[in-house]
Design a protein around this nucleic acid. Structure first.
Lengths: 246, 246
DNA sequence: CGAGAAATTGAATCAATTCAATTTCGGTGG
DNA sequence: CCACCGAAATTGAATTGATTCAATTTCTCG
């Protein structure tokens, strides 16, 4: 329609199978596409929104990656999530005037803006869209439950193995290599998210490498023993080992 | 209508200000009330639903209290939430065939069952109801973020103080005494929820008592220094102390 | 009242942190 | 292109908060 339209549409987005479009038919998809605002790229460290930004929209990651952080009263930061293409950001703020967390680009990234009042209006007309939004929020809650378990019950080793295998899985879903990926996330951010210090993360990564579970080359990670890592992350390696050696 | 109808209705429920009715007008409230099924009381330890119960309904706590737990592959339990009157249970399972957690009564309790497909239908007709459901889920996510911070950044002392003050606050919202309450939750469940052992909980409670923050008499807890406890739970007591002594 | 569960208390242990000292990486300007 | 700077990461040694283990004591409720 205009010079600024680079033909960016849900219809041609390679992550639509993970995003709101997943359950919509052509007609519905077109309506959704119409309300979406594409924004110019964000650079690394750019703030998509922060805790004093008025809440008006949800955002879908088009490319790149983001972290969500909350800030505590005593000034500390807590990373509460990492977002890859297709992920929706902002579900923690639907009942508030302003966003309840900050979203920060981890690399050059693009987002689709979904004005919430229009989305809500559409949700009235399209039950499938409504269901989809609720599903996303529901599985968000469910994942947070799993995370609680991880933080409460698992040792440092298991937490990091979970993080790596989970990330690998998410890359796979997006058509990226699940064996090898460049961390856009720093050791610091991983530690913050998992409730560990950067030193512990560092030590564990070198240990995993010695144990031939992964190779580490700076930010480049290669997964060598996915199944074993997954089993270990669940505290199941003892049982698994027993099975193997019996 | 029948002998079983003890005139239990949203209209006369003393927790409706915390529950779905909060934003509805008389007409809408009546529609909601019509789809709700009241069930007979559950006894302590009764299972409202478990991880293999088909997901059909959300539940609102009418009286008593519940815990939500997930079970891990290696057989451990993780308490992911405590529910008081007015709370809705089941938001983690909207996208699944079966419930994704178990809900267990902590004392003699009653619930209102909200068939989800009917609720969803109503959400189409009543934007306010839709908004309300989304709000509940959103603040659920937000609270889980705060919990992540608590588990990742706070020491045992701060976690337990947060738990006690938060519980006190929730009792207050419900018209119960915020100074004094009977824990329906065991030390074990508190520890499980906060990522601590029962021994640590026990030691801290006796220490808090020595420090004159609370009194403990078995399950009966009395809050003596709410403000100080709240400040300590946020790691702010040093600053607060400085202010007080300057 | 009695048995099993829940809670308390102390002592020893340990996993992860903190502190400290380098090393490597990534970006910028000469 | 390379030198340089600050940020990020690595590695080791000492410390510590919470756990684990163990022994009682106190509840709870058939």
């Amino acid at each position: 329609m205009t010079k600024m339209d680079f033909s960016i549409h849900c219809q041609s987005c390679s992550f639509s199978h993970l995003c709101l479009p997943v359950s919509l038919n052509d007609n519905e998809l077109e309506s959704l596409d119409d309300i979406i605002e594409r924004k110019k790229p964000l650079q690394k460290h750019d703030v998509l929104f922060s805790e004093d930004t008025p809440f008006k929209s949800l955002f879908a990651v088009r490319s790149g990656s983001f972290k969500s952080v909350i800030r505590t009263e005593d000034g500390q930061e807590q990373v509460v999530g990492f977002h890859l293409p297709g992920d929706l950001i902002g579900f923690d703020s639907l009942d508030a005037q302003t966003h309840q967390s900050s979203a920060i680009a981890l690399e050059t990234s693009m987002v689709c803006e979904l004005p919430y009042h229009m989305l809500d209006e559409m949700a009235e007309r399209f039950p499938k869209l409504r269901k989809q939004i609720m599903s996303f929020m529901s599985s968000d809650i469910q994942q947070k439950h799993e995370l609680m378990m991880l933080l409460n019950k698992r040792k440092a080793e298991e937490r990091l193995l979970y993080f790596l295998t989970h990330l690998s899985q998410r890359y796979a879903e997006r058509g990226f290599s699940e064996k090898q990926f460049n961390l856009t996330i720093t050791r610091n951010e991983i530690g913050n998210y998992l409730g560990l210090t950067i030193e512990t993360i560092s030590r564990l990564l070198t240990r995993f490498q010695k144990e031939k579970l992964i190779t580490v080359d700076g930010k480049l990670i290669e997964i060598l023993e996915y199944d074993l890592m997954l089993a270990k992350s669940k505290g199941l390696h003892h049982e698994l080992m027993q099975q193997l050696t019996c």
